[in-house]
């Protein structure tokens, strides 16, 4: 009797979370799924005359030639952004973590500045900086670095470079901060013992730093992978998915289907396809790399 009461009590404690999840997460997800099986568009949306069309929107989306392009673009965008972002964040965190570094707080404050600006405003500023050949990047920075100028209107490669560099600038403070806090949690004694044993910098990095940060890396990788996969604004503001659909991702394409074409059914189907792909990839990553073992 007592056990049943405990279970009931436990369930009641769980209810607030369940209610929040139901309204904030499950309802939109289920509604999107429902919409993806209808022919909802601007003409029938308001009149409520849309009807169930089965998997038509999915078939339509999967049969279009653009689906493979979107998938390839997603991979370029996600991995192309994630790898340099994590690498740069990690490198900066390592530098900041040096015990004898002077003005650490000052540098840290400077480096997290990109976070201080609203992302959308930063993107608009970057849009101006990339104008060919008059923008700040093409006029000063790239020539100064002896690098070729970038014109996203005339080259797909340039469009990707523009997107990834901008995203790198917008995102690295997050990675730096997370890795920096992870590094600070590693006991200094471990490094002191390694010093006594005569370990070099590389050995200490590979044998102490990386294993100690395994949980952090796992967390950052999975959450950032999903976030970047669905990151909408950089692409929408900077290239609008162009030239053509060369830099278009699922989420941008779905947005255009919904708000340019008002094809809500197709847009919902594209979103669901994107979500399923993300879930599958996340499960595969978790299963075969065991990156979550340290967390769970």
């Amino acid at each position: 009797m007592s056990s049943a009461r405990d279970k009931l009590e436990g369930f009641i404690y769980f209810l607030p979370l369940f209610a929040a999840v139901l309204f904030l997460f499950l309802y939109p997800l289920l509604y999107s799924t429902y919409v993806s099986f209808t022919n909802m568009n601007l003409m029938n949306f308001f009149r409520h005359t849309y009807r169930f069309v089965g998997a038509f929107n999915y078939v339509l989306a999967l049969r279009q030639h653009y689906i493979s392009t979107l998938l390839i673009n997603e991979v370029i965008w996600t991995l192309g952004s994630l790898i340099p972002m994590m690498a740069l964040g990690f490198a900066l965190a390592l530098i900041l973590n040096q015990r004898d570094l002077r003005g650490k707080s000052f540098f840290y404050a400077i480096l997290i500045l990109p976070w201080a600006f609203p992302g959308f405003i930063s993107l608009l500023v970057w849009q101006g900086m990339w104008v060919y050949p008059y923008g700040f990047m093409n006029r000063y920075v790239l020539p100064f670095l002896h690098m070729p100028t970038i014109n996203a209107l005339q080259s797909v490669g340039d469009a990707w470079a523009e997107l990834i560099i901008t995203n790198l600038w917008l995102s690295f403070p997050y990675y730096m901060t997370v890795f920096y806090s992870g590094l600070q949690s590693i006991p200094a004694e471990l490094y002191e013992i390694a010093d006594v044993d005569g370990a070099g910098a590389l050995t200490k990095f590979l044998r102490i730093t990386v294993p100690s940060l395994r949980k952090t890396i796992a967390f950052v990788f999975i959450t950032s992978f999903v976030f970047t996969w669905n990151n909408f604004y950089p692409i929408y503001v900077l290239t609008s998915g162009g030239p053509g659909i060369s830099t278009e991702t699922f989420i941008v394409y779905a947005y255009q289907q919904a708000f340019s074409y008002s094809n809500y059914g197709v847009a919902a189907a594209l979103s669901i396809i994107s979500t399923v792909i993300t879930i599958v990839l996340a499960v595969v990553v978790m299963k075969f790399t065991g990156v979550l073992e340290g967390i769970t």
Partner: peptide, 14 residues
């Protein structure tokens, strides 16, 4: 959108 997609691809030389 139909126009934009292919016009931008054309002017990018694709």
């Amino acid at each position: 959108n139909s126009f934009h997609q292919y016009a931008s691809e054309f002017f990018a030389g694709e």
